[in-house]
Amino acid sequence: MSRFARVAVYAGSTDGARPEYAEASRAAITELVGRGSGVVYGGGSNGLMGVLADTALEAGGEVIGVIPKFLDDREVAHKRVTDLRVVDTMHERKMLMADLSDAFLVLPGGIGTLEEVIEMLSWSQLGLHRKPIALLDVDGFYQPLVALLDHMTTESFISVDHRKFLISDPNPITLLDTMESWESPKTTRWLQDEDQT
């Protein structure tokens, strides 16, 4: 059984340009649910968001959708999830998803997905959570982001310890195994006195 009761999954609201994105997403979610974890996601029915929700439901998993009212009003919410929670703002959505989850899994996506993963990284750097954040790097999709974060680390804008908050792998099983064994680096806060490290 997984150490994670629930995992927040971030993903695009479109399918992307290649079928590999949906295929890898299905494989990752099937494995995640098979390990006993529930899924928390953005509540949508379109694109990879819909794929991940449908896959989790078909595998018998718990699926909690969190969606802002303005998107629910546009009828993009997934109506078959285990629990659909409608909130007022995007900020509330992200906070509730984080509060409900023990880890974060990032599937391919666009600006919204990128914003979510960067915000969770920022929160981990500030010591607001100690949860693993994992990129499913389908066919190198996230390599530009990984390279940028490595460059920021080389240039001393991100500490070596804080860079360890984000893990990535192209293989869903390997990625989930790494998430399960992940331990938070000793440095868990950005604002920390040097004599306390």
Rank of each mutant, 00 (worst) to 15 (best):
K69C: 03
V81T: 13
V63L: 04
K69S: 02
V106G: 00
N46E: 06
D88E: 07
L128E: 08
S122N: 12
D72Q: 08
D73I: 00
V138L: 06
L121W: 15
V66S: 13
V87S: 09
P144S: 10
H129K: 10
T89S: 13
H129Y: 12
E115H: 12
K79Y: 02
T55M: 01
G47M: 01
D137M: 06
V81F: 03
L114N: 09
F70M: 14
L71Y: 15
E116T: 05
P68H: 13
L71E: 10
K79W: 03
G110Q: 09
Y142Q: 10
A98F: 06
T113H: 04
S101E: 06
S45L: 12
I64T: 15
G47C: 02
A56N: 11
V76D: 07
A53Y: 04
A59G: 07
M97F: 13
A77K: 06
E92N: 09
K69W: 07
G44F: 14
L96D: 07
E119D: 12
H91I: 03
D99I: 04
A53N: 09
E115S: 10
S122G: 12
V117M: 13
G47K: 00
E62I: 03
Q143T: 14
M95K: 15
L57H: 14
W123Q: 04
L84W: 08
F141P: 14
R93N: 04
A59M: 10
L126Y: 01
M90L: 14
